[in-house]
Every structure is written in C-alpha cells, then in structure tokens.
Design a binder for these strands. Sequence first.
DNA 1: TAGTGCTGTTGGAACGTTCCAATTGGGTGT
DNA 2: ACACCCAATTGGAACGTTCCAACAGCACTA
Lengths: 348, 348
Amino acid sequence: MTNPPPPRRRRNSLRATIHDVASKAGVSKSLVSLVMSGSDRVSGESRAAVEQAARELNYRPNAMARGLVGRRTRRLGVLLSDLRNPFFGDVSSGLLERSRQLGYELVFTTGDREERYEDLAIDAMLELRTDGLILAAPQVDDAVIERAARETAVVVLNRRVESDLCDYVTDDDFAGGRLAAAHLSSLGHVRIAHIDGGPGAGAATRRTGFEAGIEELGLAGSSRVVRGSFTEEGGFRGAYELLSSGVRPSAIFAANDLAAIGAVSAAEANGLRVPRDISVMGYDNSHLSRLRHLSLTSIDQAAAELGRLAIDRILERIENGRTEAIHNILPPSLVVRGSTAPPPESTH
Amino acid sequence: MTNPPPPRRRRNSLRATIHDVASKAGVSKSLVSLVMSGSDRVSGESRAAVEQAARELNYRPNAMARGLVGRRTRRLGVLLSDLRNPFFGDVSSGLLERSRQLGYELVFTTGDREERYEDLAIDAMLELRTDGLILAAPQVDDAVIERAARETAVVVLNRRVESDLCDYVTDDDFAGGRLAAAHLSSLGHVRIAHIDGGPGAGAATRRTGFEAGIEELGLAGSSRVVRGSFTEEGGFRGAYELLSSGVRPSAIFAANDLAAIGAVSAAEANGLRVPRDISVMGYDNSHLSRLRHLSLTSIDQAAAELGRLAIDRILERIENGRTEAIHNILPPSLVVRGSTAPPPESTH
DNA sequence: TAGTGCTGTTGGAACGTTCCAATTGGGTGT
DNA sequence: ACACCCAATTGGAACGTTCCAACAGCACTA
C-alpha cells in the first residue's frame, strides 16, 4: 500500500497572496478579488475586514497572475529611440499625461539607438503582452514593425510606415521644411542652405519640403542642401562644408536643434556671429532651443500633442477594435527666437 | 441524471500557446518548454520539429506565465526621475550595457518629476515583480524607498538614502564641490560664487563640498552661495541675483550643467562675456556641456559607470543573496573646457 | 536473462489571479 | 406557508508556463 505523496509546497516567495489575505480576513479568495477590484456588491464589513488584512500582510497583487488570466493588462509598451534626445522627453510627457487620464500604465524601453537592440526590445514588450506598442522614431525596418503589428496594436510616432496594419502620428515634415525656407526668405535671405538629417526618420521629407519652398520662392539658384545628420556633429560638419565653400550662405536651416547648435559652433569657429553675420535655425523646438543662451529659432512639432494623439489612436484599436490604419499628420509651426535675423547686407 | 458541463474554452486570444506548438510538432508541451529554454537533452529531430512548428505558428512565449511560475524574471525595473535631463540618458547607457552583458532585461518608468507619480510608478514595478528596482535620483521620501526595499532588491542611484535595506551608488558630491572651488581658485579667482541645487538630490552635499574647499583656500570672506535649482531657470535667477549685487563674483559654479547654461545667459544679458569677463562652470559633464557652442567646464560624475555599478550591486543582491547595504561613492573629475579662464584683472 | 544506467520524453502540479456558475440566507408578496 | 427574488458570497476552472518525478526504450554488464 502506497500512501499518497505529501502535498508539494513550492511558494515562490514569502510574499502574501490573495489566499493569505482571504484566510486572515476569514473570507474566500474570490471575495478578496472583488474587494481589490473595487466591486460594489461587497458588504461593508467584508470590505473592511479584507482591507485590514491586506494592509497588515502588506499584500500586493501580482500583475503577472492578473495579466495571465485577464484579457487586458491596461499596460502599454513604449519604445523610445533615444533617451538622450530631449525631444523624446517632451513626447513622453504627452504620452504619460494622456495615459494617466485614461487609466493606462506605461513601460518604456529603448534600443539605445541601435537597430538590433530595438528589435530585441520590441520582442521583449511583445512577450510582456502589453495591450499595445508605441514606437517613437524607431530605426528598425518597416517589416519588423509590421510583424509586431500583426501581434498587437501598434502606433508609430514621428515616422511614416508603409503598412496598413498600424497607425502613425507625425508632424508634417514637408510643411516644416517649407516653413523654414519661407521664414528665412521673409527675413531677406537669398542664399539659404539646408543641412539635412541624413538617413534619420523624417529627414528626407523635411528636405523635400525645404526644396519645394525654395523653388516656390524662386531661390533655387542661390540655395543648396548638404548632407548632415540629427546630431551636433552632423550640423558642425555640414556648416563647415558650407562656410568653406566659395559662396557662403547667409542663412542655415539645420535638420534639428542639435544639428543647429553644431552649425552655430562652426559659424563661430569661422569668426561669424549669429545672427548678425549669419542666421541659423533648427527643428523640434526642444528645450535646447529654448535655452536663453542659445535662443534658437526652430520649428515646433508639438511633441506633447504627438504623444497624446498616439495614446488616443492606440486605445481606439484596443478598446474599440478599430483595424483600419489612421495617419495623423500635425502641422508644425514656426518659433522665432534670437538666432535668425535679416542678412547683413539687407537693405531693409 | 445530469450530464457533465461542456469543457469551457476561454482562450484569451488567438495567439499560439505552447500546447499548440506541442500538438503541431507531435510532442508534449514539456518538450517544447525544454526546446525553448535551450536544453541539451533533446534529440535533434524533436528540436527541429518543435522549432519548425513554433515558427509556423508564430509562437511567442508568454512572459507573464513564465514569470508566474518561475522564481526569476530576469527583468529589472528602472525609475528615471527625468526623461528630459540628458544626464539620465548617459546613466541609462551604462545600465543597458551591463544588463545586456549579464542577460537581464530592463524596463523603464518615470514619475515625470512628480513625487506622487514616482510613488505610483514604484508600485507598478513592484506589482510587475521585476527581480529588482533601480531608482535613479528619485524624489520620493526615504520611507517610500525603504518600503520598496522590504519587498525587492533596491539600488538607489545618485542619491544617498538612510536605510540599511538598500544600496546606493553615487558620485562623491562633496569632492565634486571641492574640486570646483579648487579649479576656479587655481585660475586666480578670489570672488567665487556657487548657485546651489536647492532641494535637489545631492545638492546639499555639493554645496558643503564647495564651502569646505573655499574655506581651505582661505576665500571664505570673498565667496558666497546663493539658492538655485537643477534647472536653467534656477541658474539664471541665481546668476542674476549675484550679478546685480554690490560685489560681483568673477567666477560662478552652478549646481549642474543646465543651471550653468542659465547662468551664462544671465551673464550675457548683463553684457558680460564668458569666460573673458566671468567664468562659469557646471556639473555632470552631460552632453550639453560638450556642445561646442557652449563648451562648458564641468565636473564629470561618470554617469555610465554609475549605471554599470548599479547593475552589479543589484545582481549581487538578487543572485548572491547579499543583504547588507553597500554604498559606492565614485570620485568625480574635472573637465576643463572653454567657459572658465583667469579673471580679467588677473596678473598671471 | 535479469539488472543497471542513461537518454529522451511525458503528465501533472503549481504559480496567483479572474471569472463564472452556483449557493446561501434573509426579505417580500401573495 | 410558499414561491420568488436579490444581495452577498463561494468553489473551481482557466490562463500559459516551468519544474519535477516518473517512465519507456535501449545498450551494457554481470
């Protein structure tokens, strides 16, 4: 005769579970669950007993267990391409504000500006089963994004994606580029240069918009575009190239604020003062451009609003089951500060 | 006679589970689990069959289920106090680098610079049952941190905490403050001012170090400290106060780089040129200070190294079960750039 | 031939929740 | 006195994994 094996106790940790609370309060675990979820069909005494027991045991619900059985986690994953770029800080504010209003929780990751790490980060979030995924200016291929969009709700921020499985929310980079050209022209500049963002997301559109604006203004002959990047280094190099060439531009539009700062440095290294001798402007209206010492004219792309919209779009997918793609393209606006002025030889 | 109720199918989603893979591959779920975890006691054929089935079904393991049953999630939570401050981008690089080496995954949150949101963010991570929690310059009370440390491994970054339940890793703010005083003095400055970081983490220590250095140098009579904050605004106001007072300092040490930029702005607004008329230095050696246009002398606190150490400390707790508190205090170093120079009346 | 050990595989319990169907018990209406 | 209802409560199944003990073959050995 074999006696039954003793009940196996594995108890993952010393942390109190819903069962512990239940037995301490003298009720069933189901009732504890009801109290925890704030149900209104629980008697006052039961509620009080459960709450006290939970407090005494330091009970903390296990999100994994909850997420396993429930259909929703009310948690969204956010991939930020770069924790160093203040622009994403502004975007995150919008994301956080809106998600708090709507009772969702956000977890952030980053691929640290490297494509393979972004790929891994996306996988990790998919395994975590967040209700949706927000990708802020991701570097990965469209195919990777589309694969993710097949598994969960996906909204891409600050980049256009050729896929009808996900939404994107971005500013109108074309209009922004055009706006920059118009601003510099309106100050009287004729020789206007653009240092582009190279392979960065949105850079091509920004450049195309600039070129279109220049064309409309009839300045195509006197303007030019050089290659740069979304970094200070890119702006510095681009400006250096421009300033050491035969005909100097009197105004430079850089791909973003960081690059604009690089361009300012290059100008000063060439003995030029901004904006007296040369005008420089950036893009993003990040807090960098607002720093008084820099006071950079810039194009504002309403970072926080982009973030808020991204949350709205993803919740439509999650809660209302929308599946057709929506593309939100916000109009950018010009913010004039101290780094742009009429050209020195202006006859204003 | 009651017939048994039909088996209830709830199936949370249309996503393939380990069971689906198992039946498709014609093996048991246990074997699939073994293959997925890379066990070496699986035959080649079984492995191939499982891998193919998984691929065809687009199988992705559910991290919640895994985390529920397993003892470890190999996931760490990180609370960043501010997504806008580039310093935390540098810290994160160190965290990411080291955690990748050691096979841990990081999830970030932020309280968006507000104490109550930080509190909520900490709760959320605790519910997520990450193996540990890294708090980067948190604003919450020591008591909140200690409460968290009672539930999981906690390491605090860039702030000292009076608790023997958690570690902290920070730079030596006292030494940093002293270093700043010494640098400015060595250039010949006598009237040296400090704009402090107000209530910010580490600000008090930094100020005390500065004061001690000034004392040792015998400059206590000619130097002073004014109140500021870790923001550009704080630096601007502090510098304004200093510059509109009777005896102007010839050198200013601001609480961090952001505040230093504010101070530079204020100086320029007063018609002073940096560093010709007045020297200004910051703290953090963030990428802001490296921008050529600013070229700010700063105190480097090895942000990435702080991050790496934080990971090491927390893994000692998690994997080796260490419980006594360890405090890592890194020596800061001076980085001289273009914003500091001998005072105008110097006889050098 | 029977025992031993090894390799590969398996079913089932457990993790901590939520959700559902079922149950209890005290009114209420007739 | 009965059926009926409603509010409060409960046990158990399910979620998708991991882990453990057990087992089926097979090759050796004695």
